[in-house]
């Protein structure tokens, strides 16, 4: 990453400074306070949920909102653990397969020097505009024809060829993998797969860590439209809304499940955060 100069280029008036820090403070409060409030509320007992004016902090924290979740979310045939398993399985499988398929393709797009590939890459750039939500109805037709409705495939398969992951990795390889390095590997007799495994993937680590974050986040909250009917195949986001229908008395549990849903993406962000900036700096569309 480029080093920043340590000098301040332009100074600001006192009024400017006040405006600057108040704006930053307000924006920060707007984004983070609802989340902090959510975490705090998830530990409130029922009587504290119902008092008004609501207190920001909790007096007597309790875990009961969390302990109620299995009975609130679970069904007779489907325990809540099943929804958890589905969510995690889908997010990991979709993200993993996407990274492998997209990095292989990105390597070829960047380094195979084939004219026809640049047309395909142009199409990928256009498809950046569309995600599986905007494509859901035409995809529904395809799923029906492939007889995949009501299987795990409807979650995982469309996530694998996501345009944004391939695009980001191709841009990153363009900048970070020198042709000379591949040339040296060729002289050593390395094939394409060996180059991919030994050279490209290690250099590409910041990019695939970033894709891991973006893809996991998408997969973790995905709600397929009209393609999942079995209760056993549903994921947490699909059953969460049943709690929020319970109004303010259930808000403790609604917040508890929201907090649980927040944890995995935050963990992934913590692991990947330092790589994200490096990757994003090569993301430009020329």
């Amino acid at each position: 990453m480029a080093k920043k100069a340590q000098y301040r280029r332009y100074t600001r008036s006192t009024a400017g400074n006040i405006a600057y820090f108040s704006l930053l403070f307000l924006a920060g409060a707007f984004t983070i306070l609802p989340l902090i409030y959510c975490v705090i509320t998830s530990f409130k007992p029922l009587d504290e949920l119902l008092i008004f004016p609501p207190r920001f902090f909790v007096r007597r924290p309790t875990l009961s909102n969390y302990l109620e979740l299995p009975s609130l979310l679970g069904k007779i045939q489907v325990p809540v653990s099943r929804y958890f398993f589905n969510s995690i399985f889908i997010a990991i499988a979709g993200t993993g397969l996407h990274i492998i398929a997209a990095s292989l393709a990105a390597f070829a797009f960047s380094k195979s020097r084939m004219k026809s590939w640049s047309i395909l890459f142009l199409i990928i750039q256009i498809m950046l505009l569309y995600n599986s939500v905007t494509l859901s109805v035409p995809q529904y037709l395809i799923f029906t024809k492939l007889r995949m409705v009501d299987t795990y495939w409807v979650y995982i398969l469309p996530a694998i060829p996501s345009a944004v992951g391939c695009f980001l990795m191709k841009q990153f390889i363009d900048v970070s993998v020198p042709d000379a390095l591949l040339e040296a590997a060729r002289i050593d007799g390395a094939g394409v797969l060996r180059m991919y495994y030994k050279i490209v993937m290690p250099i590409l680590k910041p990019a695939w860590m970033t894709i891991m974050l973006l893809s996991f986040q998408t997969m973790w909250t995905v709600i397929p439209s009209g393609t999942i009917f079995s209760e056993q195949l549903k994921t947490l986001p699909q059953v969460m809304s049943s709690i929020s229908a319970g109004g303010i008395a259930r808000s403790g549990s609604a917040m508890a499940i929201t907090v649980i849903m927040m944890i995995p993406p935050i963990l992934v962000f913590m692991v990947t955060q330092s790589n994200v900036m490096e990757t994003m700096s090569t993301s430009g569309i020329k």
Partner: peptide, 18 residues
Amino acid sequence: FIFYAPALVGNAYFIWTV
């Protein structure tokens, strides 16, 4: 992190129902 958090945690828009 502070600014990115709402987008990061996905469907936390639930919070606003309160």
